[in-house]
């Protein structure tokens, strides 16, 4: 059973339905025991960094996420669920993240250095391509150069570049997913990315 952590942020129904579509049972829950009992766990999330952290904290789930990851079970973060894994985010002031991965979460620059003519709108919203740098089993059904749906104004900067699974171009090349041991986390939304995205959900449920 896959547990999707419900901490009051975003459209969790789509994540659950996405798993069901590819034949994996998934449960949306904020119950610590159910999360710890699941054999794989998803941390989704849209909204603001600080709100998400405080909601996780209020529900007593900060520690739970840490324990799931430590246990070695497959863990997937989506969008803010990627960003929260890092040490700190700068959305509406500097806020501490879960600190499971080393690095920071920063805002897209308003202007691109060396290219003042080109205006990149923020949020980065819509379909963009991924470049696979290091292919985890999660991406086994995904094409290099495949399109995924993004909606975000901040991106992660891992201290250890070797955890980069994919990058994406938007004015600059940013890290669009990371892979480290049992953690895979993506800035884009697999549950909103049609066939390509469902392929990631399918592969996640198949990881041994």
């Amino acid at each position: 059973m896959i547990a999707i952590i419900d901490y009051g942020m975003g459209n969790l129904r789509s994540v659950q339905k996405g798993f069901e579509k590819v034949g994996h049972e998934a449960l949306v829950t904020s119950d610590r025991r159910k999360i710890l009992d699941a054999d794989r766990v998803v941390l989704p999330g849209v909204g603001a960094f600080a709100d998400c952290m405080s909601n996780l904290d209020r529900l007593g789930l900060v520690d739970t996420v840490g324990r799931v990851i430590e246990s070695g079970r497959p863990f997937m973060g989506i969008c803010l669920g990627l960003q929260l894994l890092f040490e700190e985010g700068e959305e509406f002031g500097i806020h501490k993240g879960l600190g499971i991965l080393r690095g920071r979460v920063v805002r897209f620059p308003a202007e691109v250095p060396g290219n003042p003519e080109q205006i990149y709108k923020i949020p980065h919203m819509g379909w963009n391509k991924i470049k696979i740098m290091n292919r985890p089993p999660h991406l086994k059904y995904v094409e290099d150069g495949g399109f995924f749906y993004f909606v975000h104004s901040y991106y992660v900067v891992p201290q250890d570049g070797s955890i980069t699974a994919t990058t994406t171009e938007y004015g600059l090349e940013f890290v669009s997913s990371v892979w480290k041991d049992n953690i895979f986390a993506a800035q884009f939304h697999p549950e909103k990315s049609q066939e390509q995205g469902l392929g990631i959900l399918k592969a996640f449920g198949e990881i041994k």
Binding site: N11, K17, Q194
Partner: peptide, 29 residues
């Protein structure tokens, strides 16, 4: 949202925070 996995927007007659919450909860983005 059970059948189609892409972003979905709903407009028309949204008057308050509760209307938005209900739509997001039903599966719109």
């Amino acid at each position: 949202s059970e059948q189609v996995f892409m972003p979905l927007t709903v407009g028309g007659g949204i008057k308050n925070i509760d209307d938005i919450r209900a739509l997001l909860k039903a599966g719109c983005d």
